[in-house]
Amino acid sequence: MLDELKDANEYIVSKIKETDTLILEMEAFALEHNVPIVTKEVAEYLKFLVESHNFKNILEIGTAIGYSGTIMGRVAKANGGKLTTIEIDEIRYQQALENFKKAGLENNINAILGDGVEEVKKLDEKFDFIFIDASKGHYMEFFNDSFERLSDNGIIFIDNIMFRGYLYKEYPKRFKTIVRRLNEFIDYLYAHHNFVLLPFGDGIGLVRNKITK
């Protein structure tokens, strides 16, 4: 089954024909410098999701070089909104600012340099879409603090939630705590939220703040 999923992902990636110069540039940079960015199939799904819902006010926890932020920021700009994005690494933060400028998004991005665990708590606005892709050991904290800032019927997109497949296969002992925390996090989401777990990329978790009338 795992081999079938891997083959399916590879097939999907083979069908994605990216032509955007900046996106291709960032993908090449990430590959050369070992920078973690969303996989191609996850990037396609992310773009589809934010465009389909016309999200306007977006929060990202984990900017890296601005790859996923550029995808979401373009949608927010088209809808007259903005992207707020948080990055803890100053070098990555500066690289992201350069890429946002190349994308013409500098006026539609609120880029914050700092620890997401602390910076999310300082935000006093609502977001209709929240993308979490930062330190896996803090996913529960990121989620709980950001969920308080999620608009009615808004969506939280959690990337890499299966952590390299270590949640369901043998893993190095040094990752024991992260694996335990992620497993507990997934159990918590299933028990307390409108949650779905999708097995592509490195695992995607989606939570909708569903408001019924």
Rank of each mutant, 00 (worst) to 15 (best):
F175C: 02
D159E: 08
G154W: 04
G165Y: 02
N160T: 09
D145P: 02
Y171N: 01
N144T: 12
G154N: 01
N194D: 11
R180A: 15
F163A: 06
F175A: 12
A191Y: 09
N153L: 00
I161Q: 09
G154A: 03
F142M: 11
E141N: 13
M162K: 13
Y171F: 15
E184Y: 05
Y188V: 14
K173F: 13
K169T: 03
F163H: 14
H192A: 13
M162F: 14
F175G: 00
E141K: 15
Y171C: 04
I161D: 02
Y139F: 11
N144V: 13
L189N: 07
F163L: 03
F147T: 07
R181D: 06
E141P: 03
I155D: 01
L182S: 01
D187Y: 09
I156K: 05
H193D: 00
N144G: 07
Y190T: 07
E148Y: 01
D145K: 09
N160I: 09
F143Q: 04
F185D: 02
S151E: 09
Y166N: 08
F142S: 07
E148G: 03
F147G: 08
M140F: 13
F143H: 11
N194R: 14
F185L: 06
N160P: 03
Y171D: 08
Y190C: 08
F163S: 12
N153A: 02
G154Y: 05
G165L: 05
L167G: 10
T177H: 01
I186L: 14
N153D: 08
F175L: 10
I156E: 00
F157R: 06
S146E: 11
T177V: 14
Y188H: 13
N183L: 12
F147Q: 09
Y168Q: 11
E148P: 03
S146D: 02
E184W: 14
V179W: 05
T177C: 11
E148N: 14
T177Y: 11
F143L: 09
E184P: 01
R149N: 00
R174S: 07
F147A: 00
F185G: 11
L189T: 06
I156N: 05
F175K: 15
D152V: 02
R180M: 08
L167P: 06
Y190S: 14
D152N: 09
K176C: 03
A191M: 09
F163T: 05
R164H: 15
L182C: 01
R174G: 00
H193Q: 07
P172C: 06
E184A: 15
N144M: 15
I161K: 06
F143R: 04
A191C: 12
Y166P: 02
M140T: 10
F147Y: 09
N160D: 14
F175V: 05
D187S: 07
I156H: 06
Y188L: 13
R149P: 00
T177N: 05
K173L: 15
N153S: 07
D145R: 10
F163W: 08
K176G: 04
N183A: 13
G165R: 04
N153F: 09
E141Q: 10
Y168A: 15
Y168P: 13
I186M: 05
P172E: 11
E141A: 08
K176D: 03
D187Q: 15
D145W: 10
R174H: 03
K176Y: 02
F185I: 10
R181Q: 12
S151P: 06
S146T: 05
G154V: 03
E184D: 15
Y188P: 06
H193Y: 15
I161R: 00
